[in-house]
């Protein structure tokens, strides 16, 4: 006897078990009897379109066991709004649930709905900080944060400083770099890095990060993107790249990303293709051999011959 079948509160409900329709169903799961019972009561109340307090409790129970159930979330939301429930309480429950099920995305969709309806984002950044303590690269959480920034116009409420804080924790956190790009360039109608002052600030920021971790792709990608969006010639980054990778000192390259950038800069120079080829050779043979075939391909695109013809074959 399960907990619903013995509970007088549920005695009026005839549970509705799932019908697999025949023998040998695919991907059948050895459910616990608790889940099986909960599911059959859920199916019964959904079939009756019941919106009640006991339904809210039941959906909590089911979501805890199967948070990926896509219609139970919609059903719960309808129920909450129908009963005009205190949405702050809902958020508190959601906090626990999200911390337990880090990878689930329905939770965040539901949170969107609730916070949108509340029309108030008080406390949200505090909760997000808790989530980031467990996983500072959680995709759902970063996406949710972007939504919050847009929905509540938080562009200038410490968001840039927040990215700095996250990068101070981990300068290789690419999610934080991406968020910075969004904060600087994602707001409708702002010039972003096309504004010379902002461009300089962002270049300085990324260059400082490279200084700490030269072999960190995120700030290099960021630098290139700033140059591109600001329509600044790549050659403007040449001196900087050469601090980390110089053809004159082929034995002391300290960033494969600098070397790659240098190759691109050289390729744009008059008579620079051969030198670009040398940079690509260094990548292929010494500093990034895992991508050897790609560096050879890039040479081919510059019209240069492959130095190791067997490269493509060995793959």
């Amino acid at each position: 006897m399960g907990k619903y079948s013995v509970d007088p509160l549920w005695s009026d409900i005839t549970p509705l078990p799932t019908d697999e329709g025949g023998p040998n169903p695919l991907a059948a799961i050895a459910y616990s009897s608790e889940y099986e019972e909960c599911m059959s009561y859920l199916r019964a109340v959904m079939a009756a379109n019941e919106y009640s307090d006991r339904v809210l409790d039941l959906t909590e129970d089911l979501i805890d066991m199967n948070p990926a159930h896509y219609t139970v979330w919609l059903y719960r939301a309808r129920c909450l709004f129908h009963l005009d429930k205190d949405l702050r309480e809902e958020l508190e429950w959601l906090n626990e649930t999200a911390l337990e099920h880090q990878k689930n995305y329905q939770i965040w969709h539901h949170r969107n709905l609730v916070v949108d309806k509340l029309d108030d984002c008080t406390g949200e950044t505090v909760f997000i900080a808790q989530m980031f303590k467990r996983d500072a690269k959680n995709y759902h959480v970063w996406s949710y944060r972007q939504w919050l920034v847009r929905r509540f116009g938080l562009w200038e409420s410490g968001e840039l400083e927040f990215t700095e804080e996250m990068l101070r924790e981990d300068v290789r956190n690419n999610s934080a770099w991406n968020h910075r790009w969004f904060v600087v360039n994602g707001r409708e109608g702002v010039p972003g890095v096309k504004d010379p002052e902002i461009r300089e600030r962002e270049i300085e920021f990324a260059q400082a990060a490279v200084g700490l971790t030269p072999q960190n792709q995120s700030p290099w990608n960021y630098l290139r993107a700033v140059a591109k969006k600001a329509q600044m010639p790549l050659s403007g980054l040449k001196a900087f790249a050469e601090q980390y990778a110089s053809l004159g000192r082929p034995d002391s390259v300290c960033s494969s990303f600098a070397l790659n950038l240098l190759a691109d800069i050289l390729a744009e120079e008059i008579d620079g293709k051969e030198k670009a080829g040398q940079a690509l050779d260094l990548l292929a043979s010494k500093y990034d051999p895992i991508r050897k075939n790609y560096w050879e391909y890039r040479k081919g695109q510059l019209g240069l011959k492959s130095s190791t013809p067997e490269a493509m074959v060995s793959a």
Binding site: A27, I29, Y31, Y35, N66, A68, Y70, H101
Partner: peptide
């Protein structure tokens, strides 16, 4: 039967079926 750890994927059974 798939072990009970897959309960959280009950609502994704068609893609489990496809994998198999």
């Amino acid at each position: 039967y798939l072990p009970h750890h897959y309960t959280g994927n009950d609502s994704n059974r068609m893609y489990l079926a496809y994998f198999i």
